[in-house]
Design a protein around this nucleic acid. Structure first.
Length: 166
DNA sequence: ATTCTGACA
DNA sequence: TGTCAGTA
């Protein structure tokens, strides 16, 4: 069995990604325009996808085809996810938590906010557990989103985590 | 042959 | 979502 390949390595062209996921090429590009995907790029500009990206594309497809969401719905869903729920804030690399625009606004996922702030952070975000898990469609994430969708904004603020079983 | 961006049905 | 144009 093949175990020597990295599920995060960019190895598939958009055509192959479309073939494997059942999502058309134009639609995959659309997902990217919506900020849901951050594909790799070859020096010439061609998009490349990893096997993990394939899972991500399938997750989005699932939300749209099976959960009845549209693209706007998917965006709102991921926007509900505070980055600190998946990854401890790091003052060293992220700066003071109080000054983090991603945590302050939370109207969009952190990777989209960071990009708009002009930072070339795609590489880091692609590796970040927040980006990688937000659209993983695991049972854990489904449970988390269900919780986030029903509680109030105040309940989402960091620092209120009565740190017990987390 | 395949992909890219932008525009449009 | 799909498709067409004009490239690379």
């Amino acid at each position: 069995m093949p175990e020597a390949f990295d599920s995060q390595e960019p190895v598939l062209t958009i055509g192959l990604a479309a073939e494997r996921t059942g999502v058309s090429v134009p639609t995959i590009r659309l997902y990217e325009m919506e900020g849901l995907l951050i594909p790799f790029r070859t020096p010439s500009g061609r998009r490349l996808y990893s096997y993990e990206d394939l899972r991500r594309i399938q997750c989005i497809r699932h939300l749209i085809h099976d959960e009845g969401l549209n693209l706007a719905g998917v965006r709102r869903l991921v926007a509900l996810l505070p980055c600190w729920r998946l990854k401890p804030h790091n003052d060293e690399t992220d700066g003071p938590m109080a000054e983090c625009t991603a945590i302050q606004q939370e109207k969009e996922p952190c990777w989209i906010i960071r990009r708009r702030e002009g930072k070339r952070t795609d590489e880091e975000c692609r590796r970040c557990e927040v980006y990688r898990n937000a659209l993983s469609c695991t049972q854990e994430m489904k449970t988390l989103y269900r919780e986030l969708a029903t509680c109030k904004p105040q309940d989402l603020q960091p620092g209120q985590q009565s740190g017990t079983s987390e």
